[in-house]
């Protein structure tokens, strides 16, 4: 890089890139960290129970933990639309 270009095209500020990358990765990591360890097992058990009554697969059950104010919410969504009764 010549003198001219180094004077007139300053390098991007790497600190602000670092800050943005950190914000994104930490937002993601904090969300998954707060989820209790038992969620995958709960999802499996729910699947087993529902499967006694109708045909269902793993993608049709969604288990999430969220927050509403001071209250922790356990959110369970089970799709039944396409599920056939046994």
């Amino acid at each position: 890089m010549g003198l001219f270009s180094s004077l007139f095209s300053p390098r991007p500020k790497t600190a602000s890139i670092a800050k943005e990358r950190l914000k994104i990765v930490l937002a993601h990591e904090r969300a998954s960290r707060d989820a209790p360890d038992f969620l995958p097992r709960l999802q499996k058990d729910l699947l087993a129970v529902v499967a006694r009554y109708c045909q269902i697969n793993e993608e049709m059950i969604h288990v999430n933990v969220g927050k509403a104010g001071d209250t922790s919410l356990l959110e369970i969504n089970i799709e039944l639309a396409g599920a056939k009764a046994l």
Binding site: K13, T14, A15, S16, A18, K19, L22, K23, L26
Partner: peptide
């Protein structure tokens, strides 16, 4: 280096 934009500033780290 913070002034040059090469290092995270103290405010950045505090905020994060």
């Amino acid at each position: 280096r913070v002034t040059k934009g090469e290092m995270l500033a103290v405010e950045d780290v505090k905020e994060i």
